[in-house]
């Protein structure tokens, strides 16, 4: 009777250890896949590349690019305001999903850029020619 109880206990421990191992592995994969830091870096770079690739020809030209932020919002800290996620100063794009972390990337296109939330899921990046300059001949 005691031997049977021992076998059962060993099997239960074995199964629990296996489940524990699998859950730790799955947890690791989930954390790696949607990491806040990875998302911040990718968004900052992609916004900078969008600005670099844009063409504005005269002062009446204005490009508005709408960015879907649903993926980033899943990783954003709840107490961190959506208004502060994207900020553009000079030629620097800064992307933040929490108070403690941020990613930045520089663009080379010499234009006026502003970023603001369009609604609770999207941001709009407005690109315009700097005052007093025209590209058109």
């Amino acid at each position: 009777m005691n031997k049977k109880a021992n076998i059962l206990t060993e099997n239960v421990i074995f199964i629990i250890l296996n489940l524990l191992f699998l859950s730790i592995l799955i947890g690791f994969l989930v954390l790696q896949g949607g990491g806040k830091i990875v998302l911040e870096k990718n968004y900052a770079k992609q916004i900078a590349l969008l600005i670099d690739s844009s063409y504005t020809y005269d002062q009446n030209d204005k490009i508005e690019i709408v960015i879907n932020m649903e993926k980033a919002l899943k990783e954003k800290d709840e107490d961190f305001s959506f208004d502060r996620v994207v900020s553009i100063t000079g030629n620097e794009v800064k992307f933040k999903l929490s108070e403690k972390s941020e990613a930045k990337y520089y663009f080379f296109n010499d234009v006026n850029v502003a970023a603001r939330p369009l609604n609770d899921k999207e941001y709009v990046i407005v690109i315009a020619v700097k005052e007093g300059e025209n590209n058109a001949d």
Binding site: N91, F108, N109, K130
Partner: peptide
């Protein structure tokens, strides 16, 4: 750089 409207500041 300026006539091609490029800004290499910080980079």
């Amino acid at each position: 750089l300026s006539i091609c409207r490029l800004n290499f500041a910080n980079q």
